[in-house]
């Protein structure tokens, strides 16, 4: 019995100790700041470069919850985060006009690209129009992987299909319901086409055979915005912290960190406030 008691003792000590650590983290002042953002900013490692500089300046710890744009907006609507950094302008405008968000700022941009296997079965290489390329893919019934998760990229993809006047369906059109990185891996495996933001693609370039087939269309412009959650909606929303982070992100320092961020030697995001 002694041994069991001893083990139980160790168990309880470990638990109490950790809970204590967590509790200390909880009570830390100023309160933690919660940022819901897209997988593209997290997966590329941009935030790991940006946020430590902010924490150093202000002492505010930022908790990053990386989900698709659609879910990030839901988290904002429920008051579960203090600000959101997303990329789907139509959804952002709705978020603000519905009264959930205030003080939207343009932050940075990059562009979407259509990726595909190097042998390009649908022959879209060289097309400048994204929706024409999508038409070719659907006409050829080549595999296309859709994010299918209501993310910013998925929103844009649906807009492109609408522009092309196509309602994609059939076995060639696969809705994955996963993040960008996972979808690129899937498309690589299935030799399929997909729409990606350039940042995620560049950060995964060494892990995939997919190549950029269509780029440069105005419809492929990908702007990121940052929006504070309306503090009037829920008690305890860290509005001050959110505004300080927005101020930092749009400051000369924040913007230059964005502009200088490189992955595999390439620039992933272009600052929009101070160029």
């Amino acid at each position: 019995m002694k041994k069991i008691k001893f083990l139980l003792f160790i168990f309880i000590i470990t638990a109490v100790y950790t809970l204590n650590c967590f509790a200390e983290g909880q009570l830390e002042k100023p309160a933690r700041l919660r940022l819901a953002t897209t997988t593209s900013t997290e997966n590329t490692g941009l935030l790991d470069t940006l946020l430590p500089a902010f924490t150093k300046n202000t002492g505010i710890k930022v908790d990053v919850i990386a989900v698709g744009t659609g879910k990030a907006i839901t988290l904002g609507e429920n008051g579960d985060v203090d600000l959101i950094m997303v990329h789907a302008r139509s959804k952002e405008d709705k978020f603000i006009s519905d009264g959930y968000g205030v003080n939207r700022r343009d932050l940075m941009h990059n562009d979407f690209i259509i990726l595909g296997p190097p042998d390009d079965p649908a022959g879209i290489s060289g097309y400048n129009s994204a929706s024409e390329a999508m038409e070719m893919i659907s006409g050829n019934k080549s595999n296309f992987i859709s994010r299918g998760d209501d993310s910013g990229t998925h929103t844009r993809e649906k807009e492109l299909w609408t522009t092309a006047g196509i309602t994609p369906s059939g076995t060639w059109y696969k809705e994955a319901g996963q993040g960008m990185g996972a979808v690129i891996t899937m498309a690589d495996d299935l030799e399929a086409y997909t729409l990606s933001d350039r940042g995620t693609f560049l950060s995964m370039k060494d892990k995939t055979d997919l190549i950029v087939l269509v780029e440069g269309d105005n419809n492929l412009f990908n702007p990121y915005g940052v929006i504070a959650v309306n503090p009037a909606l829920y008690e305890g929303v860290n509005y001050e912290g959110a505004m300080r982070l927005i101020a930092f992100l749009t400051s000369a320092e924040g913007q230059s960190i964005i502009g200088n961020f490189r992955k595999n030697g390439e620039q992933l995001f272009y600052p929009d406030v101070i160029k």
Binding site: T18, L19, F22, Q26, R34, D63, I65, E77, N78, G79, D80, Y234, E235, G236, V237
Partner: peptide
């Protein structure tokens, strides 16, 4: 969730 009944306790996204 902050929009739920126990939202005031701020337990979401914590251990």
């Amino acid at each position: 969730s902050r929009s739920g009944p126990l939202g005031g306790l701020r337990l979401l996204f914590t251990p």
